[in-house]
Amino acid sequence: MDSGIRGLSALFGSFRYGAVRRACNIGAVVMVAGCATADADTITIAAFGDSLTQGYGLPAQQGFVPQLEEWLRANGADVTVVNAGVSGDTTAGGLSRVDWAITPETDAMILELGANDFLRGIDPAVSRENLDGILSVADEAGLETLLVAIPASTNYGTEFKTQFDGMYVDLAEKYDVPLYPNFMEPLGEGETVAGAAEQYLQSDGLHPTAEGVALIVEGIGPSVLELIEGLE
């Protein structure tokens, strides 16, 4: 994105695609949450986010949620990770659906939202308010929550970036939740989504390949284990 917002047109194409599929994605979330049959000792984690969480462009078992669940189980955690990601979602979209996306069985939440807000140039103050609302719901529900940041580039200026990146830090402190500072950082070469190494990105230049997801999971996995440590 810093070099002309690489792949931006492709992503806005995915917004249209995401709008068409939104109802299907939401329905899938409800079905997965409603049909969970994990035993009482299994920890249920809601992975709540956008296309990066949902697994845009990948076969179902190669997306972020299935790979994370497999990694956590391989590392000794008795967990079920529910895919509550919706392609194209903004923080406003997340706030509008968080009340019903968190089921009574949910023990913890991974909150990954903000990339689409940045790409649309949404005022960081609006994004902050929406994330605040989501975290408030999680807090009232007593959920252990991991807040995942998606740092902005400087395409909208340094002040925008400072405010946008700072909202994650401020909200993590406000709600006393752990902050994972950069979802895409394990892909290397830059702070932002489009700054990731090309070999780990799909043709749109923004969404990770299955190999890229595996690196992301390796990076965030230990933080998720720490999140659920006290729940087991």
Rank of each mutant, 00 (worst) to 15 (best):
V20P: 02
R21F: 10
A23I: 11
N25S: 13
A28N: 14
V32A: 15
V32Y: 09
A36K: 10
A40R: 15
D41S: 15
D41M: 06
D41N: 13
D41C: 05
A47T: 03
F48V: 08
D50A: 15
S51M: 07
S51V: 04
S51A: 15
L52E: 03
L52P: 03
T53L: 04
T53D: 01
L58M: 13
P59F: 01
G63C: 02
G63T: 01
V65A: 06
P66M: 03
Q67C: 11
L68P: 11
E70M: 12
N75W: 08
G76E: 07
A77N: 10
V81A: 12
N83V: 02
G85V: 08
G88M: 01
D89N: 12
D89Y: 08
T90G: 03
T91R: 07
G93N: 13
L95C: 06
R97N: 02
W100F: 13
E105F: 10
T106E: 07
A108Y: 09
I110S: 04
L111K: 05
L111Y: 09
E112C: 13
E112F: 07
E112I: 03
L113E: 01
G114W: 02
G114K: 04
D117K: 03
F118Y: 15
G121K: 07
P124F: 05
A125F: 09
V126L: 15
R128S: 14
E129T: 07
E129A: 15
N130L: 07
N130W: 00
G133C: 05
G133H: 14
G133Q: 12
I134P: 00
V137M: 00
V137E: 10
G142I: 01
L143I: 08
E144H: 14
L146K: 14
L147T: 11
L147W: 12
I150W: 01
P151H: 03
S153T: 15
T154F: 06
N155D: 14
Y156L: 11
Y156Q: 05
G157T: 01
G157V: 01
Q163C: 00
